[in-house]
């Protein structure tokens, strides 16, 4: 093995600008976190709605929920990103299409967030559905018998318990979204995977130096997210109720 170490590379400036590689990686981390969090907001809100729809007693609503999940779950995330980035603009009306292709600000970022958010929403929806279905049928009846409407029964009875039960799987879905955010490199978002690849190229093969910092940052972020969800889980713990793991 003839690997030339150069740990000083972090403090060299990148060819295309006046920041150091280390600063560039930190910016990459910023984009990674931004994509993951924005996508997670979309995934959690849409996933909750879709998962709830799947348990609705109304056949049509349940079917819409089911179609949503199958649609967004069965195509790889990288390809879904390409579909949003390259294909969808072609399907838009001419003027809008031109605007998206030429003038849309932060197009790469927004497309990545949308693709990752929708992809993850299908998986969140499956967890929400499982959570609701794990509650006894009697709970729904008890809510209805009190005079709650269907919506109120979900709002006050079913969803609060369902979400407590699914905190552990939701945590891992969030981690997946965080890790999947790396695909955004493929449409040119300067997140950590993109920066790592560029850095390997521009430094002429300082592979270890280029990859180690982003890798460690990924590990730290995963660990932090795990801790945070643990805190949320303890905070929302229901006395006398054993949450199934």
């Amino acid at each position: 093995m003839n690997y030339q170490w150069n740990w000083g590379v972090f403090f060299e400036t990148i060819p295309s600008g006046d920041v150091t590689y280390l600063t560039w990686i930190i910016h990459g981390l910023g984009w990674t976190v931004a994509i993951s969090l924005c996508a997670w907001i979309i995934a959690l809100s849409l996933g909750s709605i879709v998962g709830t729809l799947r348990t609705a007693q109304h056949r049509g609503l349940a079917l819409i929920g089911h179609a949503w999940v199958e649609f967004f779950r069965n195509v790889p995330i990288l390809l879904q990103l390409f579909l949003w980035f390259f294909v969808v603009p072609e399907l838009l009306p001419h003027d809008l299409s031109m605007w998206v292709k030429q003038d849309m600000p932060a197009k790469e970022f927004i497309t990545s967030v949308l693709a990752l958010g929708l992809f993850t929403s299908a998986r969140v929806a499956e967890q929400v559905r499982a959570g609701i279905q794990s509650l006894s049928r009697g709970q729904r009846n008890a809510g209805l018998a009190l005079g709650f409407t269907q919506t109120q029964t979900y709002r006050y009875v079913l969803l609060p318990m369902a979400f407590r039960i699914i905190i552990p799987p939701l945590t891992s879905e969030f981690m997946n979204a965080f890790k999947n955010s790396g695909v955004a490199y493929a449409v040119g978002v300067w997140e950590m995977v993109f920066v790592s690849r560029q850095m390997v190229e521009e430094t002429g093969g300082q592979v270890i130096e280029s990859l180690i910092v982003p890798t460690v940052l990924y590990i730290i972020c995963s660990y932090a997210a795990n801790l945070l969800m643990g805190v949320i889980e303890r905070r929302s713990h229901v006395p006398g109720f054993i949450v199934a793991k």
Partner: peptide, 9 residues
């Protein structure tokens, strides 16, 4: 109800 169905949370 038979199984009480209080809201556990």
């Amino acid at each position: 109800f038979q199984h009480f169905e209080l809201f556990p949370h």
